[in-house]
Nucleic acid binder design. Structure first.
Length: 307
DNA sequence: GTCCAGGCCAGAC
DNA sequence: GTCTGGCCTGGA
């Protein structure tokens, strides 16, 4: 793997374990938009366009086998300080998949299907709010709500043509937004109270984000569940995508389907499904979950066909 | 009009 | 502790 920065654009070269679709369309991130063959992504203070390089571009850069463009991603310093962490570039996904492929034939198939998937390390506070919104909701709506909240309270970071992009608000900024505005502009419905109350609990340090980062997984999970609108599934998403807790195993409808299709027999108890995940995949349950989830949703595993 | 979506909460047992 | 019904909203 090699990283270049040319004219404020970053290039990640000769890294096969990096497929934008498998990273962004995997339910872990919401601040992206499919444009042409790539993705417009807002992360921290950055607004970037990410796409796979074609043969000509690879040749011009110096005969690389494959590569990713992060347009407007910044300098190598930006890479070291932000992108490297955001994309978890220190994790060797090739090794990880090889390990998983020896587990069982289902995980093997999911790992082959999901080559290039990576679990992001995003901002903890942003993940808390994002996944409170995600409950009983669908991705296009979640994305709209989060963009609206960013526009409502966050700093403007970039404008192009008539589009403006906003950073996700800080705790301080979001604490000033009212339930009424969240309902009216962000269309989050009954989740508005959850957001306002949870932000207040964080501001008042009834729940400390620093503490959560330092606690062992089980205790961090318990701590997050004190927040309104945060249950077991949402807490696991927050820990997996916002704090790189690989043992977190979010059980959503797709995981219920895929676990019952391959590992369990019509188990409906979420807690038991989660325990099965922990037993099967141990301290890497969250990573296995990502491959299984992606495979299940893309292939509609466990969905009864009509007719 | 009806149904449901990447769950949580409150109340009942 | 475990189970059930209700829920904002927008699109099928």
């Amino acid at each position: 793997m090699e990283v270049l920065s040319i004219n404020n654009d970053l290039y990640i070269l000769n890294e096969k374990e990096f497929v934008p679709k498998n990273i962004f369309e995997n339910g872990q991130a919401f601040r992206w938009e499919k444009i042409n063959d790539g993705y417009m992504v807002v992360a921290d203070k950055y607004v970037v366009y990410i796409e796979e390089l074609n043969k000509e571009q690879l040749q011009n850069l110096g005969n690389y086998d494959n590569g990713i463009l992060i347009q407007n991603g910044g300098t190598l310093d930006d890479y070291e300080r932000f992108w490297k962490t955001y994309f978890n570039m220190d994790r060797d996904y090739f090794l990880l998949r090889n390990e998983f492929m020896s587990y069982d034939k289902y995980l093997k198939e999911a790992c082959e299907f999901g080559v290039g998937l990576r679990v992001l390390k995003q901002d903890l506070f942003e993940m808390i709010i994002s996944f409170i919104i995600s409950a009983n909701n669908q991705i296009p709506k979640i994305k709209k709500s989060i963009n609206a909240i960013s526009e409502l309270a966050g700093d403007k970071i970039y404008s192009i043509n008539n589009n403006s992009y906003y950073k996700f608000p800080t705790i301080e900024q979001l604490s000033k937004v009212t339930v009424e505005d969240l309902k009216k502009y962000a269309r989050v419905g009954y989740r508005a109270e959850y957001i306002v109350n949870s932000v207040k609990m964080i501001v008042d340090e009834e729940v400390s984000l620093e503490k959560i980062k330092s606690l062992p997984y089980e205790e961090a999970h318990k701590e997050l569940c004190k927040l309104q609108g945060v249950g077991p599934k949402v807490a696991d998403c927050i820990l997996l995508f916002g704090d790189s807790r690989d043992e977190a195993f979010p059980v959503d409808t797709w995981v219920i389907k895929v676990m019952n299709e391959y590992y369990l027999d019509n188990e409906k108890n979420m807690k038991k499904i989660k325990e099965a995940g922990a037993k099967l995949f141990k301290d890497k349950a969250g990573l296995a979950q990502q491959y299984l989830f992606f495979y299940a949703r893309e292939n509609k595993v466990g969905v009864k066909k009509k007719g």
